[in-house]
Design a protein around this nucleic acid. Sequence first.
DNA 1: CGTCTTTGACCCGCGC
DNA 2: GCGCGGGTCAAAGACG
Length: 349
Amino acid sequence: MDYSPWINTSLDLNINPQRPHLEAPINGMENNFFSLGMRSSSPKEESSGALVEELKRVSAENKKLTGMLTEMCENYNTLRNNLMEYMKKNPETKEVISSSKKRKSDEISTSNNNLIGVNGNNSESSSSDEDQSCKKPRELETCIKAKVSRVYFKTEASDSSLVRLTLFFNYLHIHLCLSALVSDCLTFFVIINIQIVKDGYQWRKYGQKVTRDNPSPRAYFKCSFAPSCAVKKKVQRSVDDPSVTVATYEGEHNHPHPSQMEPTNNRCRNQMNSVAPSSAAAPSTVTLDWTKKTKCSNDSSYKNRMINSDSKMEIPQILVEQMASSLTKDVKFRAALAAAISGQMLHQN
DNA sequence: CGTCTTTGACCCGCGC
DNA sequence: GCGCGGGTCAAAGACG
């Protein structure tokens, strides 16, 4: 193990490309934690100057990240406002009735929930062939009888299955109770992947088809969380705007939201956290189950906070709460934290 | 080895 | 009746 006093907290944001003192490779976050706790042999005169320099660079990076986060929050607020305006202007979209060429009669009576049309900027762009066919009177009648409901979501096509926010908490000064124990500036570098899963449910892909009016393939999913759940989902990129992915939901779940159920094992938890394969399954990353908040309709307090708060600072506060909660639950984090504390205590003794 | 994804074949409704 | 097109099935392969 490299007991170098230097900790590479850089995020490579080109804030300061020249970092001659950061030559040692970083072998993961645990190493950083352990090296933090074990460092004791370096003269403080040498480390203090470099630490100041590092602190400056890290501060610049943190400033940039703060700007990125602020921009992201602004975009979110803009999108949400657009949605609210659209919902006000087009109240009928809440009750859009769609048709379906159902072959199975049992699917007809599966659901009777409302349909919420969620379209951001171009409300018509994401209209699929289903809702267009609904405009036909005959099929409209069929729709009413069938009470087949659908929920339309508009998502970024950069990730068709989930929106991944990678928040870089550059030097997350976890002082907490440690500030009393740690004499030096204890700096943790934490990369947190927050996966905002679209709905949090568990889906199984059972088909894919290229439709006539859209070159992008349409994927068919079934809810696989409960065998008796007949909810289906279709995911297809918008024909008008390929950068937009449209998910069409059919039916109503006959089981509680997965996030509301306590996972029984790690595998189950992993499946709940990601409905699609995660490409950034770094060993030291912490995955936050964002779905616990974003789709938990029963959590009225959180819902009100999200709806009523237009302040940009509200979201970071929520993020902080979730991060703190997830960090404390993470076994690796606790182990690394304990190692760091014990290392510092040994160092002081 | 179990689970999930892929993909070609098949089924079924609808229009002509 | 036939062809088209959307939706579904299921075997095979991929993956962890």
